[in-house]
C-alpha cells in the first residue's frame, strides 16, 4: 500500500508536471534556438521573432486546410506535419524578402545592434498586421489525427492506480520532432563546412571575410534555419494547444528569457534555457497538495494548495527568472557572448 501511494504520487507528477513541461520546453527550446541564431549571426535581438512564429504557423494552417480540402491526410498523424515543409518554404521566402527590403540596408551601413532591434519592432508591427489580416486574431485549432497515445482512464484501469497518465500524441510528436531538429542543427553547426563557417562568421566577422566566407550566403542560410526552427516550434505549440496571434506574441518574452538564461548566442544554452523556463513555469505554479497527500501520513497533510506561485503569475515567472539571472550571472548558464 505504501508503495502504491508513492507510485500514484509519481504518476500525478508525471501527468501534470513532467509531460507538459517536457513538451512546452521542447517548443520553447526550438523557438529560442531560432532567436539565438539570429542573434549570433546577425547580431541583434529580433523582436519580430514571435510574430515569425505566428506567420509560419499561419502558413501551416493554410496549407493544412488546403490538404484537408483535397482529401490528403497523414493518417493517424496530424495533417499539419505534411503542411509544415511547404509552410517553412513560404516563411523562409518571406523572411528573405524582408531581409532584402529592410534589414540588408542597415547591415551595409554597419548600424548598431540597437538600430536593427528597433527596425525589428517595425517588422513586428507589419507581421502582426499581415497575420491578423490573413487569418484573423481568433483562436484556431488545426489538430487532426489520433489524439491520445496513452489515455488517463486506460492507464488507470491497466495498472489499477488511482491516478491516470495522459500522453497526447502531440506531446510525443513535439518531443520527437524537437529532438530531430536539435540534433540536425547541432550536426549542421559542428560537422558541416557551411555550419562551421556560420559559427566562424558569428565569432569573428572580419576574419571570416578574410577567409573568403561570403557574408550574404551566411545571412541567407541563417534566415532559412531560423524559419525552419521557428515554424516548427510554432506548429508544435499550436498542435499541442491552439493558434492565436496574441498568445504567440506573448511567447516572445519567455523566448528572450530562455535565450538569456541559457547564455545568449549559445545554441546549447538556448536549449537548456528553453527547458529551464518551461519547467520553472510549470513546477512553480503547480499545486502540490494532492502530491503530498499521497506521500505524507495523514497527520502531516498540508492544508493549503502547496503552490509556490498562483497560476496567474505563470506568465511572469520567466521574467522573474530572467531578472535573477541578470543579477546573479548575467552571462547565462552556458557562458554566452560577452555582454
Amino acid at each position: 500500500m505504501e508503495n502504491f501511494e508513492f507510485i500514484n504520487a509519481m504518476v500525478l507528477l508525471a501527468n501534470f508536471v513532467i509531460v507538459p513541461a517536457l513538451s512546452y520546453g521542447s517548443q520553447l527550446a526550438l523557438a529560442t534556438l531560432s532567436l539565438t541564431i539570429i542573434y549570433g549571426v546577425l547580431r541583434f535581438s529580433n523582436f519580430a521573432q514571435a510574430d515569425w512564429m505566428s506567420f509560419g504557423t499561419m502558413a501551416t494552417i493554410l496549407f493544412t486546410w488546403l490538404f484537408q480540402s483535397a482529401g490528403i491526410s497523414a493518417g493517424i498523424l496530424p495533417t499539419a506535419l505534411l503542411a509544415l515543409p511547404f509552410a517553412i518554404i513560404v516563411t523562409a521566402l518571406f523572411c528573405l524578402l524582408i531581409d532584402r527590403s529592410v534589414y540588408s540596408f542597415y547591415r551595409k551601413q554597419k548600424s548598431q545592434p540597437i538600430v536593427l532591434m528597433i527596425v525589428s519592432v517595425g517588422v513586428m508591427f507589419i507581421l502582426q498586421a499581415v497575420v491578423r489580416f490573413i487569418i484573423g486574431p481568433n483562436d484556431r485549432k488545426f489538430f487532426d489525427g489520433e489524439k491520445y497515445i496513452v489515455h488517463a482512464l486506460d492507464f488507470k484501469n491497466y495498472f489499477g492506480l488511482a491516478e491516470g497518465l495522459t500522453i497526447k500524441s502531440t506531446q510525443l510528436i513535439t518531443v520527437i520532432v524537437a529532438l530531430v531538429a536539435m540534433i540536425s542543427l547541432f550536426y549542421f553547426l559542428q560537422k558541416t563546412k557551411l555550419g562551421k563557417s556560420m559559427r566562424a562568421y558569428s565569432n569573428n566577422e572580419d576574419l571570416a571575410l578574410l577567409s573568403g566566407i561570403n557574408p550574404e550566403k551566411i545571412v541567407i542560410v541563417t534566415w532559412i534555419i531560423s524559419s525552419i526552427l521557428i515554424t516548427t516550434a510554432g506548429v508544435l505549440y499550436g498542435l499541442d494547444k491552439s493558434f492565436k496571434p496574441f498568445t504567440y506574441f506573448n511567447l516572445l518574452l519567455p523566448m528572450f528569457a530562455a535565450a538569456i538564461v541559457g547564455g545568449i548566442g549559445s545554441p546549447i544554452g538556448a536549449v537548456i534555457g528553453g527547458y529551464v523556463i518551461a519547467f520553472s513555469e510549470i513546477t512553480l505554479t503547480y499545486a502540490y497538495k494532492k502530491f503530498f497527500v499521497y506521500l505524507l501520513p495523514e497527520s502531516l497533510e498540508p492544508s493549503g494548495l502547496m503552490q509556490v506561485l498562483s497560476t496567474d503569475y505563470k506568465f511572469a515567472i520567466s521574467f522573474i527568472i530572467l531578472v535573477i539571472v541578470l543579477i546573479v550571472r548575467p552571462t547565462g548558464i552556458v557562458r554566452g557572448k560577452i555582454i
Partner: peptide
Amino acid sequence: VAAGIAFVPQTMNIFSELTVEENLEIGAFL
C-alpha cells in the same frame, strides 16, 4: 584571398570560439 593573398590581422585574428582544427578548416574555406 582566392588569388593568393593571405592576411593576419593584428588583433582578433583567430576564431576564439572554434577549435584549432576548425580554425584551420575555415582558413581553407575557399
